[in-house]
């Protein structure tokens, strides 16, 4: 099997492509192929080289750590079955993020964005607040879909407005705002989250290419979240401007 891997030795050295040929085994995925290369780091010219660096954790498409560009599309390498991919298989890092080495990238900006938009429900206090209000089942169903986000970064990679020229935080943290605003307790801090995404680099930077919803491996309705937040922030901006006691 043939692999074409975009490699980079350091965060600020230029990248280069190295080709590898490895024996086929049934049911191989991209990660087991990378492990095969690590076992015997020799490129297709027969030269000894360094093993390819990549990240992984859960191996079942729930952590997002192993995301990379496989044959031109960003996705998780742990669920990319080699037999379903066209040869030669090209692997590239998701360059929207800073490359650490080879296929390893630094997704810190996504976690910073979750902090910025307050993607949590504050319940800590000095006394027991008791049980929170119940959530209607119909709402729970769609909110559950939003909660599947694994911060993998595929939607940011696919978005034409997330790049080095723009501050846009990207679709994933926006959708999390909708998730936490939908929660009956989380809703109590709705205005704070909405104001956070109305800041520079926030919601308004979306240009509706809708690549995110097409690319999300978890099928999260990102563009529905974004449009719903557009509606919420429309009302929030009126409240901010004219004042409101709600």
């Amino acid at each position: 099997m043939k692999f074409k891997i975009t490699r980079q030795d350091n965060p600020d050295t230029p990248s280069y492509v190295e080709e590898f040929e490895i024996p086929h085994r049934p049911n191989m995925n991209v990660i087991s192929a990378l492990m095969e290369i690590r076992r015997n780091p020799v490129n297709s010219k027969g030269e000894a080289t360094t093993p390819v660096s990549w990240e992984m954790n859960c191996l079942e498409e729930v952590c997002g750590a192993c995301s990379m560009i496989i044959n031109g599309k960003p996705r998780q390498s742990c669920t990319a079955l080699v037999d379903k991919l066209e040869q030669p298989i090209t692997l590239e890092p998701m360059k929207t993020f800073p490359v650490v080495r080879d296929l390893s990238i630094d997704r810190s900006r996504m976690f910073d964005a979750l902090k910025k938009v307050k993607a949590w429900i504050p319940i800590d206090g000095t006394y027991d607040l008791g049980p929170g209000p119940r959530m209607p089942e119909t709402k729970r169903q769609w909110a559950y879909e939003l909660s599947k986000c694994m911060t993998c970064g595929v939607c940011l990679e696919a978005c034409p407005n997330v790049n080095s020229k723009s501050e846009f935080i990207g679709p994933a943290p926006l959708s999390q705002v909708r998730l936490f605003n939908a929660h009956p307790t989380g809703e109590m801090n709705k205005a704070e989250r909405l104001n956070a995404i109305m800041d520079d680099g926030g919601l308004a930077n979306c240009g509706n290419s809708q690549n995110c919803v097409q690319s999300c491996p978890k099928g999260i309705p990102l563009t529905t979240s974004i449009a719903a937040l557009n509606r919420d922030t429309t009302f929030q901006s009126f409240k901010n401007f004219f004042g409101s006691d709600r």
């Binding site: 956070a196 109305m198 922030t233």
Partner: peptide, 9 residues
């Protein structure tokens, strides 16, 4: 609720 909201929006 009244927070510094940037000019972008």
């Amino acid at each position: 609720t009244i927070m510094a909201v940037g000019r972008d929006f």
